[in-house]
Computed example of a mutant assay.
Amino acid sequence: MDAVRLRSRPESARRAARSPRITGAGIAAVSLAVVVGSLLTACGSGQSTPTWTAVGPSGASASASAGASGGTSASASGTPSPGATAAKWKTFSDPGKTVSFELPDEWIVQSGAAAAGSSAGALHFDVKKADGTFVAALQTGLPQPTQQACDPAQAKAYSVLNSLPVTLPFTDSVTAISPRFVFRVIQGYKYFGSFGLVGVATVSQDGKACKLANVVPGPASIGGYAFSDVLELAPLSPQAQVAPLQAFDNLAQASAYVQNSGDFANAQRMIMSLKFLKTS
């Protein structure tokens, strides 16, 4: 991959209040503090070792190479968001300069294979914590999402515990809604939770659904896109692998996760910082 440069600047914070939990299919506006990012960096598929240049508050600069794993590292001063726990942040941009987003300084970005059925030029980047734990994936060029039929007998109760509007492009249609970041749980043998961008209305009957899609219908140049832990939230069987979904014994635990988890706050800030640099 071509080398990519980055620069840093002090962060400035803007605050918003978080709303209480809301159950059922309704979406409630809540907010979480979002801080403007401090570093510009990038990483790639590992085809070459990218380099970065970090500019400190005094104007001094330093350069280093990313690790062979495909992650990046950088140093800069910064202050933590009132919600997010990471004190240092950087901004990832792909080599083609088509997308960018902020992430904690210690997290890494790795390129992945495009999903089946994706369009030409589709992107796939996995974000992981420093220990390799998967956080979320950004994917573009996905097939455009549509509402899915749901057999009432198979539908399960679900709840929206967090919902925030985001300013991102989408293709207006009968089923599309303005993109939002949401955290939802659906009831199976446990309460399974998932976070990410949503842009399609859920087929819901009495607060129940079969599946909850974390995909936004984007314009033709972007296709369907997702920035989430999974593309689709559905109840799992006891034999299924739960990760990367969160699993809770009850809604109170799920609500506490949304209110208190630093990892969730960091992931929310990261996903809500997504920008499309080219839309045509």
Rank of each mutant, 00 (worst) to 15 (best):
M1C: 14
M1S: 08
A13V: 03
R15Q: 13
T23C: 13
G24H: 05
G26F: 10
A29K: 08
V30D: 15
S31K: 15
L32S: 15
V34C: 06
V36I: 05
T41G: 09
A42V: 09
G44N: 15
T51W: 13
P57G: 06
A60T: 12
A60N: 14
S63A: 13
S63C: 06
A64D: 10
G67H: 06
T72D: 03
S77D: 08
S81G: 06
S81C: 09
P82W: 04
T85D: 11
A86H: 02
A86P: 00
W89M: 11
G96Y: 12
G96T: 09
K97W: 01
T98Q: 14
S100K: 09
S100N: 14
F101H: 02
F101I: 04
F101K: 01
E102C: 02
L103I: 12
D105Q: 04
W107F: 05
W107G: 04
I108F: 10
V109P: 01
V109Y: 02
A115I: 08
A115Q: 11
A116Y: 13
A116R: 15
G121S: 10
D126A: 12
K128C: 14
K129P: 00
K129W: 07
G132C: 10
G132Y: 05
T133Y: 08
V135M: 11
V135E: 00
A136Q: 12
L138W: 11
P145L: 01
Q148P: 02
A149W: 05
D151M: 12
Q154L: 12
A155R: 14
A155I: 04
A157I: 14
A157K: 12
Y158E: 06
Y158Q: 02
V160F: 04
V160M: 05
L161G: 03
N162G: 02
T167I: 05
L168V: 00
V174E: 05
V174D: 07
T175A: 15
I177S: 08
I177D: 07
S178K: 15
S178I: 00
V182F: 00
F183C: 00
F183L: 09
V185A: 01
V185K: 06
I186F: 08
Q187G: 02
Y189A: 07
F192E: 06
G193V: 09
F195C: 05
L197V: 03
L197Q: 07
G199E: 09
A201T: 02
T202F: 10
S204T: 13
S204F: 10
Q205N: 09
Q205F: 14
G207F: 07
C210K: 07
N214T: 09
N214H: 15
V216K: 08
G218T: 07
A220L: 14
A220T: 12
I222P: 00
G223L: 08
A226W: 04
A226V: 01
F227C: 04
L233S: 00
P238L: 03
P244M: 08
L245Q: 01
D249Y: 07
L251G: 08
A252T: 14
S255I: 15
S255P: 01
A256K: 13
V258G: 07
F264S: 11
A265V: 03
A265H: 14
A267C: 13
M272N: 09
S273A: 10
S273Q: 02
L274F: 03
K275D: 13
L277W: 07
